[in-house]
Design a protein around this nucleic acid. Structure first.
Lengths: 218, 218
DNA sequence: GTCTATAACGTGATAGAC
DNA sequence: GTCTATCACGTTATAGAC
């Protein structure tokens, strides 16, 4: 525990080794393998190999496969829910501006890590008790700026009188489904990487337009 | 191989034991366990227990876990794709009638077996080589009545000039996503069984309306 | 901290009695 | 056809040298 360590922490600028430290290498490898194969399908040997280290080191740093998994899952969940929550709780944007931000931010996020939604949905199905508590989904909507705006807009007739959950289902469904059904959808139309990418880019603009058409009163 | 057996077959009315035969009991149990836990997470012991039989019998009837899985997966895939394919290849319905049939048929189907979509998507991610060939997704759209109708309708301006894949993504996304994200969605709004069910029923009518709003030119 | 070797355990599959 | 008992193997986890 040297002076340098503290200095780095205070400056909020961890010493450069942090990106290449063994611990970080293992976490990075674990993310890849767990996302691809799920908890049950992943082997600690795969993770060790992916990280370029020995199997024993994995247990040295994280004690068990499950503990390592919990860490990866928590981070993935945070990445997936966090931006969503912050958008929905922002009182300074309108409903449709929120949709616009969501579409752009999420499609970019999921282009980086396309396996995240299916990973989360799968694992949530397989161990619900563990994850439902973790992600606190109630806080996501209940009492949010979005909820208030939605109720108000229904009252004024600005948007149609439909349950809020339909709005969420449609928005998330259109946003996330392509990343869940990728192999099916891509092979249905034999898209190469380029056209798949351009379809995703188009959806950034189209989804907000579609949501307006579905829910706005005119 | 008795006379009765043939008689039953000819009458297309298999003798009553077929529902309760050991083989069928195992398949039924395997469906439940594989759908819930996936291939990697399911244990043959779980399946045997669920079926109320001994582990050895499972191998006696199906030789291996993988062979049993292949049978279950093929049937699930067939159930999931078959109705979709038949709707999309029917030349006697309009585009929007197809959507209507899809919404009603699929929501009913998935209310019966809600785990199917996530099961298929998960396993397709984990062993793509095996499943892509099986489901022949190209035949689903390419050369279908739907494809021809869609192209024609874009030409006449009846529907907007958008790529067909967006239509499919939105329809399937809105239809299937609620069954993929069930635990998240339900806990977000604390829905009980009754209100969850009524939301699904509402969507049978709403999804066709939304699709029209999104894609029809007016 | 990192490795090799090995223990401890869980799981798929089979042998063999009935 | 169905069972109990057991094998064979793969995987997680640990001991112990360096």
């Amino acid at each position: 525990m040297t002076c340098y360590y503290f200095a780095a922490e205070k400056m909020n600028k961890p010493h450069k080794d942090i990106d290449t430290s063994t611990e970080e290498k293992i976490k990075k490898a674990a993310r890849i393998v767990f996302h691809r194969k799920g908890f049950a399908g992943a082997r600690t040997r795969d993770i060790a190999e992916e990280a370029g280290i020995n199997l024993a080191l994995l247990n040295y740093y994280f004690r068990s496969k499950e503990k390592l998994f919990d860490i990866i899952m928590l981070e993935s969940l945070k990445g997936f829910m966090q931006s969503m929550t912050s958008v929905f709780h922002n009182p300074d944007t309108t409903i449709f501006e929120k949709v616009d931000v969501m579409a752009n931010r999420y499609i970019d996020l999921l282009k980086e890590e396309p396996e995240i939604p299916l990973f989360i949905m799968s694992e949530m199905r397989h161990h619900p008790e563990k994850l439902i508590a973790e992600m606190k989904p109630r806080q996501f909507l209940m009492g949010s700026a979005f909820e208030q705006q939605f109720k108000a807009a229904v009252k004024t007739g600005e948007i149609k009188n439909v349950k809020m959950i339909h709005f969420i289902m449609n928005l998330l469904g259109m946003l996330v489904f392509p990343f869940i059904a990728t192999p099916m959808l891509r092979s249905m139309t034999e898209m190469n990487d380029e056209s798949w990418n351009s379809v995703l880019e188009e959806r950034k603009k189209l989804i907000p337009q579609w949501i307006k058409l579905m829910f706005e009163n005119h």
